[in-house]
């Protein structure tokens, strides 16, 4: 697609786990250590929606007492784009017709859907993949029960949410489950494995890639 991907090796974590658990100062220090890693005026693509939301909406809030750091955080926030958003709206993803018919269930991370608008974007991305049929599961907009440390602090409630989510996804008879959020995928896949279910959630990037590979093989 003609894009060069740069991966600054010194990046670590967006800090969301500490931030949402009530340790904003720890999150601030982790964020502060990364403010200089993206100096060029390039978009910053985040392949996990809720991490993207953290950069875009919460990093600027962490540096209210320091104008210089705040300016850096603002610049990062402005350039932060969720992966699917970039692929659909900037690169204009469109695959040639003739992909293998596949029924796909889409799970959107709650914070990403609300902060980054990933529901419409995720649906749009799947719509650009010929042969892919989106199946809507019951209570689609409901949380999968991950919630970072919530999943460990309240395992009973979290597990009940994950289990309901997987049951409604399974009821659709889908062939694949995709999501653009790594946290949700950890939770859903860990739960699927524990249930000895053969289904595994795939990151939407992986899914798009496999459709691209299949379509080039088809045309070769």
């Amino acid at each position: 697609m003609g894009v060069t991907v740069h991966f600054p090796r010194n990046q670590t974590c967006c800090g969301q786990p500490a931030y949402t658990t009530g340790f904003p100062e720890e999150a601030r220090k982790v964020a502060a250590a990364q403010l200089d890693l993206f100096p060029e005026d390039w978009p910053i693509i985040v392949p996990s929606g809720s991490c993207g939301g953290m950069l875009k909406h919460h990093w600027p809030k962490l540096f209210k007492d320091d104008a210089v750091l705040q300016a850096k955080a603002d610049s990062l926030a402005e350039r932060t784009v969720e992966f699917t958003d970039y692929v659909v709206n900037v690169l204009g993803l469109q695959l040639p017709a003739g992909g293998k018919p596949t029924k796909v269930a889409l799970h959107t991370s709650c914070s990403a859907r609300r902060e980054m608008g990933t529901l419409d974007i995720g649906r749009a991305a799947l719509g650009r993949l010929p042969g892919v049929e989106l199946v809507i599961h019951d209570h689609e907009s409901e949380c999968c029960g991950f919630g970072g440390t919530f999943s460990v602090k309240h395992p009973d409630i979290s597990s009940a949410m994950a289990s309901d989510k997987l049951e409604s996804i399974r009821k659709t008879g889908c062939d694949a489950l995709v999501s653009a959020d790594c946290g949700c995928l950890l939770n859903l896949n860990g739960s699927l494995a524990k249930r000895r279910d053969t289904l595994r959630g795939e990151h939407i990037a992986t899914f798009i890639r496999s459709r691209m590979d299949a379509s080039t093989e088809g045309t070769a």
Binding site: C110, S111, S141, E142, G147
Partner: peptide, 15 residues
């Protein structure tokens, strides 16, 4: 103590 943590912060309430 266990009430503020009993949320996945999904945001449905705020919405």
């Amino acid at each position: 103590r266990d009430l503020p943590t009993a949320s996945s912060l999904c945001g449905a309430c705020g919405e």
